[in-house]
């Protein structure tokens, strides 16, 4: 049996393929790298495996709703995102949107459409778990849209404020 998956890896896509050779032996291709692995479930929800002489213990579980995977390897947790999720992500990278970093209630909006904002300026305040979180403009520009009203409950990733980045701003 062979299983394949593509992960977002920095800006690139990483293709991972695994072949079950039987007898607790597997061949895994990670990008261009091919590794022989001996592996088994430990019975308490972990996977014990060996690559060459190096022994690892891992736990793997789904994370969030976007198809991401948590891998806890030797006491450190990594988040793997499926390749398609990275492309889907609303962040355009030019600082033109301010999104809710977590689910919460919008407490205040400090700007109106047409306002000029500076990088790092507080444009809105979100409250969740009794703590306040300031939402900052990622780049200088002019506010073009307020997408959410004060008092509304927003999901993580919801667009709150849209900003048209200024061309000469830095």
């Amino acid at each position: 049996m062979s299983v394949q998956k593509e992960f977002a890896h920095g800006e690139a896509t990483l293709r991972v393929t695994i072949d079950d050779k039987g007898g607790e032996r597997f061949v895994v291709r990670v990008g261009d790298e091919v590794v022989d692995v001996r592996a088994r479930r430990t019975g308490d929800g972990r996977i014990a495996f060996r690559i060459g002489d190096v022994h690892h213990v891992a736990t793997v579980a789904p994370s969030g709703t976007a198809g991401a995977t948590h891998v806890r390897l030797d006491g450190t947790t990594f988040l793997l995102r499926p390749h398609e999720a990275r492309r889907r992500s609303g962040a355009t990278g030019d600082g033109s949107v301010v999104e809710a970093p977590m689910t919460g209630t919008l407490l205040a909006i400090h700007v109106v459409s047409g306002d000029a904002v500076e990088r790092g300026q507080v444009v809105a305040v979100l409250t969740a778990m009794k703590m306040e979180h300031k939402l900052l403009a990622h780049a200088p520009g002019v506010v073009t849209e307020i997408a959410v009203a004060v008092g509304a409950t927003v999901e993580q990733g919801t667009l709150v404020v849209r900003i048209a980045p200024s061309k000469d701003g830095a």
Partner: peptide
């Protein structure tokens, strides 16, 4: 991210949910 992380994710897919 070390490649062993991707190996672990692949192994989980083949070995079941534990």
């Amino acid at each position: 991210t070390p490649s062993a992380v991707f190996v672990a994710a692949a192994l989980a897919a083949v070995l079941g949910d534990g």
